[in-house]
């Protein structure tokens, strides 16, 4: 790291060239102007980040150390209480239940990645209709989750006319209650998520696979490898950076699951049948929305900070692990 830095500096010095007397003044003025303009042009997104993300993050931590008078959303109405909020949430079995449910939702990720890689591999060679298939596979990704949840809720209908119950009926099985059944709720959400996300993973893998050196496949052909062998011994290892990347963003996304559960949950009270869909974000949201029942803003802020730390830790672990295991193309 240090070496490259030194090199970069050396290169920069070289690029500027040795200072020429006389020209020095004008140069330094134009450099200073460029610096000022550069900052002015580059700065807005950084300022946006500082105001709308970084400052709230700090405030979130402060809020998590304070108790709020119920029904007040003002920072003026808080009183310092140390780590009481954290103690409260860690003592609450609901938080651990929410953490468990959130982690269970990550189960969709290996399936998304597997199907995504499979689709990308099948779409590797050009053929008639390839473009149309790419467009179709990516379609669920651009659609709003609430609109999609309407159809999925209907397909998961516990009545006998629900699509999934009709499929069961074809095999002579009794209808199930699907999303209305606390034990099945998460499975239903996971299946829908796989359907929703695999096209995105497929698209990312297609870009990655397009970069794999074709000579690898050619030499495998000469050695008489079949397509299954080529998939597992060339495509999968060469796609590891993407697998790790998709796993990471998948986990970060799953840790923040809320929208799809809120939209699929037809029970107006609670989070899914018997709170089977209570995620960490759900836990955070209900504390904010119903402060009397679930503890208010301090609890909410503590939960969000806890969630942030989990996500940060996962990001770091993923970066470390991927450095060790990832197979780089170049």
């Amino acid at each position: 790291m240090e070496h490259t830095l030194c090199n970069a500096q050396a290169a920069a010095v070289e690029e500027r060239g040795a200072p020429v007397p006389g020209k020095r003044m004008t140069r330094s003025i134009s450099r200073r102007r460029e610096t000022a303009l550069g900052w002015a042009m580059a700065l807005p997104p950084v300022i946006g980040f500082l105001i709308f993300t970084f400052a709230p993050l700090i405030i979130s931590f402060v809020m998590s150390l304070n108790e709020f008078s119920r029904y007040s959303y003002s920072l003026a109405d808080m009183t310092y209480c140390g780590f009481e909020n954290y103690k409260a949430i860690f003592a609450d079995p609901d938080l651990w239940k929410a953490l468990g449910i959130t982690l269970l939702l990550c189960l969709s990720i290996p399936f998304e990645i597997f199907f995504g890689l499979l689709i990308a591999n099948l779409l590797r060679k050009p053929f008639f209709g390839r473009r149309v298939l790419r467009v179709i596979f990516f379609l669920p990704n651009i659609c709003s989750i609430v609109a999609l949840a309407f159809v999925w809720t209907y397909m998961y209908s516990p009545q006998e006319y629900g699509l999934f119950n009709r499929i069961l009926a074809l095999f002579g099985a009794d209808p199930l209650r699907w999303t209305s059944d606390a034990k099945m709720f998460l499975v239903c959400i996971i299946v829908m998520t796989i359907w929703n996300v695999m096209g995105y993973d497929a698209l990312m893998f297609q870009a990655q696979i397009g970069n794999i050196n074709q000579s690898l496949y050619e030499s495998a052909d000469l050695d008489g490898a079949n397509c299954v062998q080529k998939f597992f011994f060339i495509t999968v290892p060469m796609a590891t950076p993407m697998i790790f990347y998709l796993a990471l963003i998948g986990i970060i996304g799953a840790m923040q699951s809320y929208a799809r559960i809120d939209a699929m949950d037809i029970d107006p009270y609670g989070m899914g049948p018997e709170d089977a869909g209570l995620t960490l974000v759900g836990y955070m949201m209900r504390a904010q929305e119903e402060p009397l029942a679930f503890g208010g803003l301090g609890i909410s802020a503590a939960t969000s900070f806890f969630l942030g730390i989990i996500i940060a830790v996962m990001t770091v672990i993923n970066l470390k692990v991927s450095k060790k295991w990832v197979h780089y193309n170049d």
Partner: peptide, 24 residues
């Protein structure tokens, strides 16, 4: 340095700051 600060944004999930944003 500026770019490094911007990099941080990518790591910071939006949901985590929703509550303080709401308060502000």
């Amino acid at each position: 340095v500026l770019f490094g600060v911007l990099l941080l944004t990518m790591v910071m999930p939006g949901t985590v700051v929703l509550i303080p944003q709401y308060t502000i």
